[in-house]
Design a binder for these strands. Structure first.
Lengths: 244, 244
DNA sequence: CGCTATTTTGAGATGGCTCAAGCTATGTGG
DNA sequence: CCACATAGCTTGAGCCATCTCAAAATAGCG
């Protein structure tokens, strides 16, 4: 299935910056691109739901996608936000199970998709892809372990600071006066990322606003002083005593 | 380097049940085995420390190994316990960074090790290994995400119940009267797995003991009623009212 | 311009942490 | 073989960070 019926366009602009396909020639990327199908999803719609049989591995090309995990009791955890160039759905396809998360487009989005067999074939033909995938998954594990530790040992304020910084690094857009998180992000979303409640997040943001660290609006967050948040996230004592 | 200088012994007993090497012929496993070096480590010693340049990927053949992550403030989190047949150190080797955790032998242990280049060569020759590795890492990610959600949304008692059940599944030994966790496990260890304190764990275990769910000794835990713990871990209400 | 989702704020409750003290197996050296 | 040292465990009391619940303010959107 061609990526888009009448479209013979070059894959390079889309795939050359995708880390899953690093180390391939333009011709190879073109072939990979031909094997993909493009899927567009409206804001608020889902690429897949949690528990669904995993068939397709996606690379986002436009928009923003959040990966939510729902607990048996119905509480949500926001595991990560996908930006263009990143892989999602891969974990489930590679382990041959059901999707462990839901993928919701938080803005109008498009992604290239390969079904499991196609991707297996491509990896066989181009072992570089498998190597890249291994590296990507390994990095994900490291990040998850890091965040697990954070959740287990740090207080809420610091966890929120880390989450905001991570979002800024991933999806931040430099604007006058700071870095803007470039998609609608509610207090509740931040709470679901950090294992707290929207009330606590609201209070924390208010405090930060008073300290001039951020500017928080409705589903909007502008980071005025990334450094200030780093200080919070890492417990660099602003004072001079008590190294604890 | 031969696995053990004078040892031409068959790899099968050691490697055939290792999921990283599933789908290979005995001859291939033998070759892989030849490329390994065996490392023995005393109880309490480390295979590697956190932050060390990652060179070797291990498969445990005897003993028990715990993977600890140390926070910048010096608090420990126990990420997982490795039992024979399982891979460890792989994440760091595959992503080409430093070990993100320390690996401590909690009993006298032995592991087969392959350095990064050797493993890369083997994977190139036997793509099946790479496929297996992808599957293993993908499963790890799923488990970590699950535990992350748990830590973010569940209360302490339930988290401890889940951790105990996980340990029982992994390292449990059936004995008269229940399932015994088969290595020394302190209250502090359980606390470090679940993001709480040893005091809280102590109280929880006492309560469980009174309910006849477990029998807790010094670094020793016997699960009398796995089902009872499952009920706790999953919030199946034992009473009939207040669905909350 | 009214409706609805989001956010703020207050007040009260509490789960779990902290710190302090005592207890008890287990191993060790005399 | 005993007495002591030690690591691991228990228990109590007080506290506090964070959650809960309730209500009001605000901001977009249709």
């Amino acid at each position: 299935m061609a990526a888009s019926e009448s479209n013979q366009s070059n894959a390079s602009p889309l795939l050359e910056s995708v880390s899953l396909f690093q180390g391939l020639t333009p011709a190879e990327r073109q072939e990979i691109y031909q094997a993909a199908h493009l899927r567009a999803v409206e804001k608020g719609e889902l690429f897949f739901v949690q528990g669904e049989e995993a068939h397709t591995l996606y690379v986002l090309t436009r928009g923003r996608v959040r990966l939510n995990q729902l607990s048996p009791e119905g509480e949500q955890v926001l595991l990560r936000v996908i930006v263009p160039g990143q892989l999602f759905g891969g974990v489930a396809v590679l382990s041959g199970t059901t999707y462990p998360v839901a993928a919701e487009a938080v803005a109008a989005s498009e992604a290239l998709g390969w079904d499991g067999e196609t991707m297996a074939r491509l990896m066989e033909r181009y072992p570089t892809i498998a190597r890249n995938a291994l590296r990507l998954l390994a990095e994900r594990i490291q990040e998850l372990q890091e965040r697990y530790r954070e959740l287990a040992t740090e207080r809420v304020e610091r966890r929120v600071a880390s989450a905001v910084l991570r979002l800024a690094r991933q999806t931040g857009r430099k604007v006058e006066g700071g870095v803007l998180i470039d998609f609608p992000l509610s207090r509740e979303d931040l709470a679901a990322m950090t294992g707290t409640t929207l009330y606590t997040v609201s209070r924390i943001l208010k405090r930060w606003e008073k300290q001039g660290l951020v500017e928080a609006g409705r589903q909007r967050l502008l980071i005025r002083s990334p450094h200030g948040l780093v200080v919070l996230a890492e417990d660099l004592p602003p004072a001079m005593d008590a190294p604890r």
